[in-house]
Design a protein around this nucleic acid. Sequence first.
DNA 1: TTGAAAGCGTTACCAC
DNA 2: GTGGTAACGCTTTCAA
Lengths: 352, 352
Amino acid sequence: MSTRRRRRGSDMNSARATLNDVAHKAGVSVMTVSNFVRGKPVRAKTKKRVEEAIALLNYRPNRSARSLRLSEESSVGIVIADSDPAFLNDPFISRLVSGLSNYLSNLDYTLDVQGVTPERFSDATILAKLGNAALCAILCGPRSIRRDHLANLQRLGPPIVVFQEVFKPPAANVAIISQDDLSGGMQLGEHLLETKVRSVIFVRPALDWCAIEQRERGLRNILGQAGVAIDFRTLSAASERFDDVQRIVTDCLAKGAPPDAIVGATDSMAVAALKSCELAGRRVPRDIIVAGFNGFDVWRVTTPTLTTVVSPAYEMGRHAGELLIGRIQNGEFARRRVVLPVRLQIGESTAR
Amino acid sequence: MSTRRRRRGSDMNSARATLNDVAHKAGVSVMTVSNFVRGKPVRAKTKKRVEEAIALLNYRPNRSARSLRLSEESSVGIVIADSDPAFLNDPFISRLVSGLSNYLSNLDYTLDVQGVTPERFSDATILAKLGNAALCAILCGPRSIRRDHLANLQRLGPPIVVFQEVFKPPAANVAIISQDDLSGGMQLGEHLLETKVRSVIFVRPALDWCAIEQRERGLRNILGQAGVAIDFRTLSAASERFDDVQRIVTDCLAKGAPPDAIVGATDSMAVAALKSCELAGRRVPRDIIVAGFNGFDVWRVTTPTLTTVVSPAYEMGRHAGELLIGRIQNGEFARRRVVLPVRLQIGESTAR
DNA sequence: TTGAAAGCGTTACCAC
DNA sequence: GTGGTAACGCTTTCAA
């Protein structure tokens, strides 16, 4: 008999088999099984016996025990601040998370995903429990709040990657990955200049967000220093949602001189603006030109197709995985600041 | 001094504080701290000392140790079979996962997300490692393969929720949640009959998928038993992607008599079909009517807006969480089969 | 109410 | 190559 108490009959599989069970079945010691499982050299004959026992008992290592023993986790957490409960529905986020998840899966890491309303960011249970080897975060809200959140994250201890921020990484355990939204705004600005627009409205959500700041700034940089005076204004919608954007754009078109161009802070906002123009009887691009940011899905389904600045969201996720795993393995980040390029993609909505 | 070896100076916070550290700092036993942490009654004075020590050392319970001791996990895994690497980008999936994640977060469970190509389903590391209290799966592929996968999942042991299947749950640890796609197809079929169409093409991806089977069957049920003979055909695109759908629809329109109606297996396919009609010079809905399934985002951005069957994806995720946690806590599923209703939403694309 | 001891399943470290 | 032993941090059990 075993030297250990057993909770179950030897062949019942209601509870999971342990190393001990396998060792018993194979007539070897626990360490031999452990060695085999982890690929250490084992004599051919022993190996066969152990393999059989493992198959028979359907043994799988207990991750908690392993984590406890090694004091290391094999999961990464990502916390996403978003006011929409369906936080993964945003195409930027869904692509980023997909890229991260795939990268981690290939390395046998697990990804824990949690969405959280912007006000409750610090309460996220992933942050409170802190059961991951590393963390990712997508923040939102005004800059000072984001800075506070970043400071709190940094103090948590594990390696952290934050997306879409312009800050300098505040500590050695923090890296920041972003796309070059400033350049994106500028590229789009240049393109707008070529279409000879004189007045441009940037439609954005009221809730602040780093990428949006940058996009606006990029546009302003170019349009502000143009040879001719260009009227550049910003319109804040209550949210990114279709209805909210439609409401504000329709209002804007109804009163006073309509702009020559409307730029949405995201494609979904641009598309809402485009529909609003249409409903108000303004033809796009003949009467008004429209453009957006992201270049994921919607741009091609509208009529006309949408000019947009294409975002490398999936790659940002993959990059984050790479950086974090590197940091876990080598003790330091290969880079603390990564900026990925964006690309202007011209559609029919700005064709003059 | 402590009776135990310490790896670090008492005030270094490079490694995480343990119960032992806190007990020491507070001058009480480990058990007192443990009791306090878990909300057991503790004398007011002791409590205060413990609270201070916890704050000072920034103590957080070690999840692995707790899991090991209790032999229970506090995470749920979801494995999603999808041929697109950006597997979360599908609006059905992103909503479902969001709903599940939010429900679990509220109960202090964590959600591990992994996408996997359909051929590699069984290799998913989440399945191999089996480190979760429960699992969810979204399968795809032909029925016989899905049935095999389901059988393998069931044998894994932990409670499982599978989405969008028509099978009877094969074991007590499996529940199936689906939306009523059959009814959705039928609702849409009835609507098409009212528009007096005589020929309908259903555009679907080559890769089989339970919901799509059902949608097709529902349509066929209604259109096949109509008073007048209706020509109902299916067109398989290489994938759900825009280009693939556009290619096949354009081909179809080019040769022979075009259909009166095109139904996409999903909204994104319907929208691609709609654009293809437009490019081929067929006006929608005047020349051809178009409809889809899902009702998430795109339906309202096309011109005309799309008729679609609205899917309760977010609620399916929430439901899955409810069922799984119930099963974990009570030892059995409250229900093993849940079918949520869908709703036909009529847009401009079928207005005659 | 508090404390001491045992053990959850695993691996590092040594012996053999 | 193989195996015994002692932790990893926690909670259950039982005694004070």
